[in-house]
């Protein structure tokens, strides 16, 4: 995983609450066996009309939001299935952070393992962000701060280990494999 220290971008806004992983990437895109080109399926049924043409109303199809690296979404983002294809697709599309008032547990865990930062903000900040699409934001991952339009910085919570791994590009599998001795001892003690 590449290190992710800072994100500077304008926002794109998807205000709906409870955006589930079937919306983020529909099930028919799950027959893939790799991660290449996975953003093709991102929000497919919202991005495209039934005939395959782009839906001009959808925010990520609009010129000013297309290259936003930060998505502001409604409450409880990423609920539903455990498909890691959802954060893969967002990341592959160019999104580095999603801001909401709450994230589903598995989505949040998957996102953090793929260099996609879920940022939980309070209701007031959330409402402001929803009302100001295209706002300029700066995220400092190491300090866990979100600065909007050069205003005051907000602190957000991020699980310390995941944060460490993001900032340093640490591979969690490598970390776990480094605990081989303890794992082997645990297995032996249980026999």
């Amino acid at each position: 995983m590449h290190a992710l220290k800072q994100i500077v971008s304008h926002t794109a806004v998807l205000p709906q609450a409870d955006i589930d992983t079937d919306q983020i990437i529909p099930a028919r895109y799950l027959t893939t066996t790799s991660r290449d080109g996975i953003s093709e399926g991102l929000f497919y049924d919202w991005r495209f009309a039934a005939d395959g043409t782009e839906n001009a109303d959808f925010v990520l199809n609009q010129a000013e939001y297309r290259d936003a690296r930060v998505l502001v979404a409604g409450d409880n983002f990423g609920c539903g299935s455990s498909r890691e294809h959802a954060p893969w697709a967002l990341k592959d599309f160019g999104i580095d952070a999603v801001i909401s008032t709450r994230f589903a547990d598995i989505f949040s865990s998957n996102a953090l393992k793929n260099g996609l930062l879920p940022i939980v903000v309070d209701k007031k900040a959330h409402e402001w962000l929803l009302d100001h699409p295209g706002a300029r934001v700066r995220v400092d991952v190491e300090m866990a701060t979100l600065t909007v339009d050069d205003g005051p910085s907000l602190h957000f919570e991020v699980e310390p280990f995941a944060q460490y791994c993001l900032v340093h590009g640490t591979d969690q599998l490598g970390f776990l494999m480094g605990k081989e001795e303890q794992i082997a001892a645990f297995e032996k003690a249980r026999k």
């Binding site: 998957n110 393992k113 280990f161 599998l173 776990l176």
Partner: peptide
């Protein structure tokens, strides 16, 4: 769990 964690369990039988 997600696919990254599937990899963790396959390799180490453990999860963080």
């Amino acid at each position: 769990i997600g696919t990254t964690e599937v990899g963790h369990v396959l390799a180490t039988q453990c999860l963080l």
